[in-house]
Amino acid sequence: MNLKDVFSQLNIPAQCKKYGLPLWQCPHFLFLIMGIIIIASTLIAYAIGTRYIEDPETMALIVLFITTILLILAFTITRSFERLAEASRMKSEFISVVSHQLRSPLSNLRWAIELLMSGRLGKIEEKQTEYFRILKENSGRMQELVSDLLTVSRIETATLPLKKKEIFLPDLINKLISEFEPFVKASNVEIEFLPEGNLPEILADPSQFRLVIENLLDNAIRYIKDKGKAEIRLEKKGKNLYFEIRDNGVGIPKGDQKYIFQKFFRSENVMRYQTQGSGLGLYITKAIVERSGGKIGFKSEENKGSTFWFTLPIK
């Protein structure tokens, strides 16, 4: 934490505004007031105490009065924490309700488009095909966003199911690379996968690790500048499996690096290259890796590229 962060923490009105709470309900403000009262009351008690030292009843009354005020303040602070927790719960619930409610109409839309495009209900004119493709692609994008939102809401409410199975990561990676082939070609980039020989299987949720590698691969390709290259390594390091994806893309500016795993965060420089994206991918990726017992991190330099890595314990 540098000096700037310390000062921004001290800017209490701004901190309270961030949580959407009025000052008198905001824990930061109430703590400050409590601190001031404690200091002031100690000084006053000392001043009065030296004057009325012979009258213990007055002294006891003053102490009782101050204690009551402190008790009321402490109670208000506890209530304000409850409000914060409630606000956070409501936000998670909001995400969950919205994404659930969006899922059904989206499935209906997607399948109706697919049925029309399959030609079963009649041939589609060439001029129309392009529009159907647009409909399909965009409903697909909405679907991905909704699915990411749901995953986030499940991570936050600790309801993301974890179904561990033995998986062989090189197979999964090769499969995903071939699935990404059209995107790789269209982006004019090159993907190289260098797995170490004799790698062991790991115990993890296959669908979740598919998401992890998909996200990292997608980011690498998306943010590589033209004719770039991404290199994937997979090796055994002690009791862990080590995965690394290195690209020579746009990189992450130094000031943005600490926010990169926060949800909804998108670096300013990538917004110049790619406006699409929810800023949820790396948040989800980190949560999955960590709940599977692994670690995740990155190194990055703006305009030079990024290297993202994660480890996973071998059984």
Partner: peptide
């Protein structure tokens, strides 16, 4: 209960 899906699957399965 989604009539949109009833319609889609009705057409698909009939075809």
């Amino acid at each position: 209960d989604e009539s949109a899906l009833q319609k889609t699957f009705g057409d698909l399965l009939r075809e």
